[in-house]
């Protein structure tokens, strides 16, 4: 099933790339209850980067949430040899491969089967506005929609092409929103799995609420036991570069896809 259709809501919580950060996910689910979200939608890339992928999947499958595939789920369920993240630089691909091989070898077959059944997109209505939830972009699962590379005329065209008022996406790991008019635009919900390359250890999820004048996209920081995650990554012999990102909040790998402005904001 490529599309799933949901009903109407006014207040929805979105969780982007989890990258096996099950500790942040536990925290996110606890926070979701107090935030009184009417629905929670997780947007793919459950594995990669972090330790013990099955722990994330067990949490996801226990909660009453909606989920779509990211490129990781598509790759794992399809038996692909790489994650299909869409990197073009050899160093980026090197680290992406380590991440994928580890995740693939540690994910149980039953969870992979479940991933294969997930829809690629979800359509729903938020505050009466037609909303399309995708992983990368509506047209490509691994397209990177960066804040500084997603201009208004392009947003206008995507909304028209895909017959929607709002596009919700992730895949880049950095959260942002751009509305071309009240109620029409793009929200990139960022990532729960790793920090936002800003020198801070917290990670992010996004709450979207319809208010009288349009959408309010609230990006919510999540503090979690990052030190424990880092220690577990070390015990799993994941690359020290990944661990450094969890401990420092600066990205150390998969940097070459970043546009000029996003790259300049980071340390590396």
């Amino acid at each position: 099933m490529r599309y799933a259709n949901l009903e109407s809501y006014d207040r929805v919580l979105f969780i982007g790339g989890i990258y096996s950060n099950y500790l942040a996910l536990e925290k996110a689910f606890t926070m979701a209850r107090s935030l009184k979200a009417e629905a929670v939608i997780v947007m793919g890339d459950f594995g990669g980067f972090g330790p013990f992928p099955d722990r994330t999947l067990e949490l996801l499958r226990r909660e009453k949430i909606f989920a779509i595939q990211g490129n990781y789920e598509e790759a794992l369920a399809g038996g692909a040899e790489d994650c299909g993240c869409g990197y073009t630089d050899p160093r980026d691909n090197h680290y992406a491969q380590i991440s994928y091989d580890y995740t693939r070898s540690c994910t149980s077959a039953e969870h992979v089967r479940w991933m294969g059944e997930l829809p690629r997109y979800i359509r729903l209505s938020i505050g009466g506005q037609r909303t399309l939830v995708c992983h990368g972009s509506p047209r490509q699962i691994n397209e990177f929609l960066w804040q500084t590379m997603t201009p208004r005329p392009f947003i206008e065209k995507m909304l028209r092409d895909f017959d929607t008022d709002l596009i919700i996406c992730t895949h880049t790991g950095l959260h942002w929103s751009r509305f071309i008019e009240p109620g029409r635009g793009v929200v990139n919900v960022g990532a729960l799995g790793r920090p936002a390359n800003d020198g801070k250890t917290n990670v992010w999820m996004s709450l979207l609420e319809w208010q009288d004048y349009g959408f309010r996209a609230e990006f919510i920081p999540i503090e979690y036991d990052f030190d424990r995650l880092a220690r577990e990554m070390e015990s799993e012999k994941l690359p020290p570069e990944f661990v450094a990102t969890i401990r420092t909040g600066w990205w150390t790998t998969c940097l070459e896809v970043l546009p000029a402005k996003e790259r300049a904001r980071g340390q590396f």
């Binding site: 997603t150 201009p151 005329p153 206008e156």
Partner: peptide, 9 residues
Amino acid sequence: EAKTLGVKE
């Protein structure tokens, strides 16, 4: 013209 065609970059 590019603006009307939704050019991205």
